[in-house]
Write a protein that binds this DNA or RNA. Structure first.
Lengths: 201, 201, 201, 201
DNA sequence: TTCTAAACGAGACGGTACGTCACGTCTTTCC
DNA sequence: GGAAAGACGTGACGTACCGTCTCGTTTAGAA
C-alpha cells in the first residue's frame, strides 16, 4: 500500500519551531491509507493520527477541517496523474482523458478522497464552498481546454463549452459515486453524446 | 415545518404486537425535520427519536440503517411529487420535468434525503447497494419513459436512451450536490444537449 | 441442563382461563437454566421468556419482581433438598447438615438463585423485605431446630440459640457469596466454634 | 450532600495529557452521592458522569468496571474510618471495633459501596476476584490483628484465629446485607460467641 | 349451546443504560 | 514555537432489557 516516507513506528521527534516535513508526509500517507481502506465513513482524524504517529493537534493545525485533508490527499497525488491528450480529434481526446481519469480514481486514494469530499460537502457548508471554489475549477480545466480546442476546430459550438463541461463533470461524478468507474466500454458512446458527435461505426 | 399527524406531545402507547401507525408517522416527520434543518452531517437517529418522542429501538426496528431511513423520507414524500409531462415534444417534456424535479428537491426534505443517501453510500456498501438497486431504477423511470416516447417519435435514437438517462442523472445529481438547483435558466440548454436537439432560437 | 417438562420447541397453546401448568414449568425450567449459566448479572426476564417460549407478560403475571422469581426457583428446587440429621450429637448434626447444604447450593440452581436474591436485595427494598420475611425464617428453621435439640441436651445454652443461628447464616452466606462452598474440610472446625464445643482430637 | 472540591457547575477543562485531579475528585464524589441515594440497582455510570459533569469515557478510563469504582469509593473514604482499639481485653476490642465499623457502614457511602461490590460479584467473575483478592485481605487485617493479640494473651487458641475471622466477616456482611447494622445491643453477645469467651454478667 | 372471562404467545412501545468511538480543545513536556 | 501525547467534556453509535400495553387465539365454565 502507499508505501511512504515510513510507517513511522513511533520515534519521530519535534524539529523545533519549524514544520517537520517527515511528520507532514507521514500524516498524508496515513490519510491516504485510511481513506483507501475504510472509505468516507470509516475515516477519522484519530485513526490518521494513530497511524501517522502524530498528535491530533498537528493534523488540525494544517487541516482545520476534513475537507482540507481530503483536498490535500487529492492534490498531493496529482503528480502521478492524468495526461491531457491532444490528438487533433475531440472525441478521441475526451475518451482517452476520461478513461485515464476513471482509472486513476479507481486505483488511487484520490478517488476515495473525492468521494469523501463530496460526501462531506453535504451538510458542512464550508466543505461545499471548498469543493466549488477550490476544487472544481482547477479540476475541470483540462476538460474545458480540450473542448475549447474542439471549438476552435469547429467540432462544437463555443457557447456550448461550459454546459458540456457540466455534463461531463456530472457524468464522471455519478460514475465515481455509484462505483461504476470500470465501465470503460460505455465511455466512447457517452463522450460522443456529450460532444454531440456521432461515433464512427 | 412539516405539518404532521400531530405534534405528539408525549403520550403515545403501544398498540400491541402491531405497528403503531402514529409512531411511524411521527418518526418520519421528525426525520424530515432533522434532515431539512441539519443536513447529512447533523442527522442522528438520537435526534430523530428525541423529536418523535420515540425510542431509538423503534426506529432501528423499521430502518436498520440510515440509508433505509433516507429512502423512506424520500419515497414517503413522493405523493407531493413531480408530474411527468407529455407535450408531444421531447425537449419541452425534459425541461418541464427537470425544472419541476429540481424545485421539488430544493423545497422538500426529499432533496436533502437524497443528498444524504448519496453521502451515506460513500463508505457504507449496503447503502450503495440500496441506492443502486432500490432507489435509482425506480427514480429514473420517468425520464426513461419520456426519452422512449421521443425515440418512438424519431427525436432520438432508441439505442441512445440509456446513455442519455445516465447523462441526465449525472447532471441532476451534480446540481443537487453542489447546491445549484436554482439555475433554472440553464436547464433548457442542458436538456437540448442531452436530447441532442438544438434549442429553438 | 435441567432437562424438564420439555424444551417446549414452540407449540404450546392456552388452556383457557386457567393457568397452564406446562407454561409454568417451562418458565421455571428456563429460569433455572439462565441463572445457572449466566448468574445474577446475566439474568433477564427477556431471556427466560425466550427460552421458555413464553410471553413476558406471563412471567410478570406470576412473578411481579425478579425476587419473586428467584424465590420460586429456590423453593421449587427444595424437593431435592437437604435432610435434617438427628444423630444425638449437635456437632455431628451441624456438620452433616452444613456440608449437605453447601453441596446443594453448589450443584443446583438454588445456590445461584439465593446469591441473586441477596444481590437483588441490595437496592430493591421490596426484595430485601421478601428476603427477610419470606425467605430467611423458613430457610433457617432447620438449623434452629438442631440447635434447640442441642440446648435440650445441654450442649448449648438456650439463650444463645438465636445468636448461633445468626452466626451460622452469616458464615454460610459468606461462603456462598465468595464462592468457597467447596471448603468442606473447614466445616467441622467452624461448626465447633459456632456450637462452642471443642472438636474431638 | 458530600461536600466536595466544588459543585463544579460546568466548566472544567483538560489539564493536558495529565490526569485532572479535580475531575477525579468530582467523579468520586458523584459516585458516593449516587450509591448513597439509589443503592446498587440505581447506580449507573451515566448518572455518575452526569452529576460529576464528566464524560463517561473519563470514568471508564480509571475504573474499567463497576467493581473498581465501588472499591475506590470504599477506600477513598477510609481516612474517616475506624480505629483499632487495644484495651487489653479481646472482647472489649472486638465489641468496640465492630460497633464502630457498623456505624461507619451505616453512615457513609462506604457501606453502600461494599453492599454493591458484593452484589456485583454475583455474576461478574472479575468483580468476585477483586473482592477476594484486593478487598477482603486488606479489610480484615484489623480483626485478625486483634484476635492475634488475644491469642498471645491466651484468650483464644492461635489455630482458631483464621476461622474466627471468617465467622466475624460472615456475621458483619450478613448484618450489612440485611440492613441490620443498627442492632448494636446484640454485638457484645455475638462477639462473645465468636471469641469463645462468656460475657461478664 | 352459546357466551364470557382469563391465560397465553407475540411483539411493539417509550425508556434507560450499556460500553465504545470520534469529535475538537486543551496542557504539559520535549526538542 | 513546532510537535507528540493524551486527558477532557460532549454526544452519537447500535444493543440489551426494562415493564407496560394491545393484539388475536384458545379453552373452560357460566348462562
Amino acid at each position: 500500500m502507499t508505501s511512504l516516507p515510513k510507517p513511522l513506528a513511533k520515534p519521530r521527534k519535534s524539529t523545533g519551531a519549524r514544520r517537520n516535513p517527515e511528520a507532514e508526509a507521514a500524516v498524508l500517507a496515513a490519510a491516504r491509507e485510511v481513506i483507501s481502506e475504510k472509505g468516507y465513513i470509516g475515516f477519522s482524524v484519530e485513526e490518521v493520527a494513530r497511524r501517522a504517529g502524530s498528535g491530533k493537534t498537528t493534523i488540525y493545525r494544517w487541516y482545520p477541517t476534513k475537507a482540507d485533508l481530503f483536498i490535500a490527499i487529492y492534490t498531493a497525488e496529482r503528480h502521478l496523474s492524468v495526461p491531457v491528450p491532444d490528438t487533433g480529434d475531440l472525441l478521441d481526446d475526451l475518451e482517452q482523458y476520461t478513461v485515464s481519469l476513471w482509472r486513476f480514481w479507481a486505483s488511487h486514494p484520490a478517488g476515495a478522497a473525492l468521494k469523501s469530499l463530496i460526501a462531506e460537502a453535504q451538510g458542512a457548508s464550508e466543505a461545499l464552498d471548498a469543493l466549488r471554489e477550490r476544487f472544481l475549477p482547477a479540476r475541470t480545466a483540462d476538460v474545458r481546454q480540450m473542448l475549447k480546442r474542439g471549438a476552435e476546430r469547429g467540432q462544437v459550438r463555443a457557447e456550448d463549452v461550459d454546459d458540456k463541461v457540466t455534463l461531463w463533470v456530472g457524468l464522471s461524478w455519478f460514475k465515481l459515486l455509484v462505483n461504476e468507474l470500470d465501465q470503460e466500454l460505455s465511455v466512447r458512446r457517452l463522450m460522443a453524446l456529450i460532444a454531440g458527435i456521432p461515433p464512427a461505426p
